[in-house]
Amino acid sequence: MAGVRPRPGAVRVREGEGATTIDPTDLPGGVDDVPVVIGAVSRTDGGAARVEVVAGGWRFELEVEPARRAALRERATRAASAVGSGGALEVHAMIPGRVVAVAVAVGDAVTRGAQLLVVEAMKMQNDVPSPADAVVERVSVSPGDTVELGDLLVVLAAARASAANPR
């Protein structure tokens, strides 16, 4: 992807980590036999369109923006992260529910995949794992709290930076 300049008119569609670039001039003629429903449409802080699409029953929250602008921004982000030392990492609630257990405390070192806390929704216990090797900087919830989608749960600091700079 890097180094290839997208054609004018091409669009970048992103869902989490998975981004695809669509060029309107070389769309195949065939049509997927999948019913599509467009849901909520809004705008991200960065100015991209955020579009809820339900395709064949699957719900996607996609961010859409001109591919050229996405490429420019990505280059800027890469440059920034190269000089940065791994800043704070926020863990947000992926589902609404109740916090039933908090497995970590401020200062704990956690490995990628380690359980941070457990959110119960509809009688199902959902583990919230650490997205990286890190040190717990802040815990924003306690057992019994009700959380909504996107609520801040835990703030992590990159493990490498903390180890190199012990306090």
């Binding site: 309107p24 999948v34 599509v36 467009i38 449409v41 991209a48 369109a49 996607f60 859409v64």
Partner: peptide, 25 residues
């Protein structure tokens, strides 16, 4: 497999950056 159809449905939503977002579904 459904992602391709979703991408293609979402892509036009970027049209006319200043006005497209105000459009109702």
């Amino acid at each position: 497999a459904a992602r391709r159809a979703a991408d293609r449905a979402a892509a036009p939503r970027v049209a006319g950056v200043s006005t497209a977002f105000a459009e109702p579904p």
